[in-house]
Nucleic acid binder design. Structure first.
Lengths: 126, 126
DNA sequence: ATTATATGAAACCAAAAGGTTTCATGTCAA
DNA sequence: TTGACATGAAACCTTTTGGTTTCATATAAT
């Protein structure tokens, strides 16, 4: 599944509210562009561009049917997000957090590196 | 870049790889700007601006200590992301997905709306 | 065949994002 | 007090983003 170019990653793709709305809309059923776009206060072309960004991030798939192109949700890339988020679960346990702060004491220089997720949350592909 | 009048939401905040790296760095320990910025290939001022964006999204907190300002992770806003993501868990079950497609049959007009999360994943407050 | 529909590509534009450099201010150290 | 450090604010620049309008092409319908 290697796609190492500069395609927009999932973090970028879901940053835009319009695109999040598109995802929720396309989860239920496959839809053609014209139908999709009538739910948005912008031109069909603009929606089409958002769909392209989602497609490049792997979050939607297109399928040609006659003269229309239908899009549907492809949730798999969200797993990367889930994985990224999972790392931070440990901070939601306040007790652990408090303990950690206590153990750290008063240190200030900040040069150590404990376990971290991929530095920027971008795993090449697998 | 500047902070627009509207606060950046968490989706926006984590869209940038530098900011994700900042989060993972600040999870382990509180750190002052100068120390943080020496890990990045950009100016201290640029890092400072990223920190501001994270702070406005509630993802980091500042604390003044003498002449330095220390930042640390504040994971709570990630819960919104987790909540958003949770909706899509249902699509990761391929069997459910297949069943759904079968039930939908051949319909094409796409005007129905089944349950969806907040349309754009932005809940005012909670 | 002709016309209407569905869509993407292209050219263009304003605003936002990400970065830089310079300057002002507050705090620590001699 | 004087000077060095830590930081944020301001002004500025370039690239990206999100949108528009127009045009070309493929399919469908009459």
């Amino acid at each position: 599944m290697a796609a190492p170019s500069r395609k927009p990653d999932v973090f970028q793709a879901i940053a835009d509210p319009t695109r999040r709305q598109l995802l929720s809309m396309l989860g239920e059923r496959e839809m053609p562009v014209t139908v999709i776009s009538c739910h948005f206060p912008m031109s069909r072309t603009a929606v089409s561009k958002h769909l392209r960004i989602l497609a490049e991030a792997g979050l939607v798939k297109e399928r040609k049917v006659g003269r229309e192109t239908r899009y549907r949700l492809e949730p798999e890339p969200l797993l990367e997000l889930k994985r990224w988020l999972a790392y931070y679960e440990r901070y939601w346990d306040n007790k652990l957090l408090a303990l950690q702060r206590f153990v750290e004491g008063d240190e200030t220089d900040g040069t150590i590196s404990l376990i971290t997720p991929d530095e920027d949350g971008t795993r090449s592909a697998e």
